[in-house]
């Protein structure tokens, strides 16, 4: 058994809001093995992005706070590091790629300075050398004429090119783990395919692990080794990708798969929507967060909170009736 690169244990992150305390991430645990791509799937408010931000301790405090848990990276608990300690890890051994390349790049700095910065900062490389490396990285993410484009500003790049710059920055220090939060949601489908294929290829080359956060079940199927499905701040199911799609063991996962039209689906069959609304984290039911929308809900689900049950090899499901769903 491989020792995991990242091991998140019982992570809870809460936010103070006008309507009371909201537990955006509630007792979440998962592992990421070296070189593995874990997809975290969920809708808005499921807690997937807050989970990612918590790992790098990027939760604004106040109003947010990591309440409890452990985030073991290479055996070290990131939650116990001081500010300097976590800064040394961000952008070096763990890098993050955000959804909006335009708002995550500094519009007033040249692309060369931004791609070179982590190398200069973490590797204590002189700027001239850092810029050489930056040009090389731009080539790696297939930006033609990398060297001559070092002096350009982000607005002179197209959306897809900006996301390539973000990837170049993330790869600058050869991170062991890349966290990509909806990295292609803002992009067109042909560009999305290019960016994700590039990301996958480069992580494979460097044997970096990746946490891919997305709401798109197709993207997950194409790129993930393992999947964690989040709902209402909790992980409700986790399994190797093939297994999850073949035998989903949680009603929410099953509901998602039945409600999303597929390119190869049967067009005569109507979509089966999940009735109701995604949960309001400020007023979650005491039992299973999915209970109000679940077709197979029982009295027990409304009162008692289901823990994660072992439902197969490396397959966990937070449903009392996961075995019944196997059929």
């Amino acid at each position: 058994m491989n020792t995991p690169l990242l091991s998140v244990r019982n992570l809870s992150t809460r936010f103070r809001t006008e309507r009371g305390t909201v537990r955006a991430v509630d007792n979440v645990s998962f592992d990421v093995a070296p070189g593995e791509t874990l997809a975290i799937v969920g809708e808005s408010g499921s807690g997937k992005s807050v989970t990612a931000l918590s790992i790098l301790r990027l939760i604004p405090d106040p109003p947010g706070k990591i309440e409890s848990g452990e985030i073991l990276f290479d055996g070290k608990d990131l939650l116990k590091l001081d500010d300097e300690g976590i800064r040394a890890i961000r952008g070096d051994r763990i890098a993050m790629i955000f959804q909006e390349p335009m708002s995550s790049l500094n519009p007033a700095l040249t692309v060369g300075l931004q791609v070179g910065e982590p190398i200069n900062l973490h590797r204590k490389t002189v700027w001239a050398k850092a810029l050489d490396k930056a040009a090389e990285l731009l080539g790696k993410v297939r930006i033609p004429d990398g060297r001559s484009r070092l002096g350009s500003y982000p607005h002179q790049y197209s959306g897809g090119m900006r996301q390539r710059v973000m990837i170049a920055m993330a790869l600058a220090c050869q991170p062991r783990l890349i966290i990509a939060d909806e990295p292609t949601t803002a992009l067109d489908v042909t560009v999305q395919a290019q960016i994700l294929a590039l990301l996958k290829e480069l992580t494979r080359e460097t044997n970096s692990a990746m946490i891919l956060i997305t709401h798109d079940l197709g993207v997950v199927a194409r790129y993930a080794d393992r999947v964690a499905v989040m709902y209402g701040g909790r992980i409700v199911e986790t399994a190797p990708a093939r297994q999850l799609y073949k035998t989903p063991r949680h009603p929410y996962t099953r509901g998602l798969m039945a409600s999303v039209p597929r390119l190869d689906g049967d067009t005569e069959r109507p979509l089966v929507p999940i009735e109701g609304q995604p949960p309001d984290l400020a007023s979650l039911p005491p039992g299973c967060p999915f209970a109000p929308r679940c077709k197979d809900v029982t009295e027990r689900c409304r009162i008692e909170r289901p823990p994660l049950f072992e439902s197969g090899p490396s397959h966990l499901s937070a449903c009392f009736y996961h075995e019944r769903l196997a059929a």
Binding site: A193, Q194, G218, A221, R242, R262, L263
Partner: peptide, 27 residues
């Protein structure tokens, strides 16, 4: 053809078999 090839299908087994001809460049 390029558009359709770029859309991933929500099934890892089908995805593993699909040839991915991804077109280059942007609009």
């Amino acid at each position: 053809q390029a558009l359709l090839a770029a859309v991933p299908i929500a099934d890892p087994e089908i995805e593993a078999q699909r040839g991915q001809q991804i077109i280059v460049g942007e609009i």
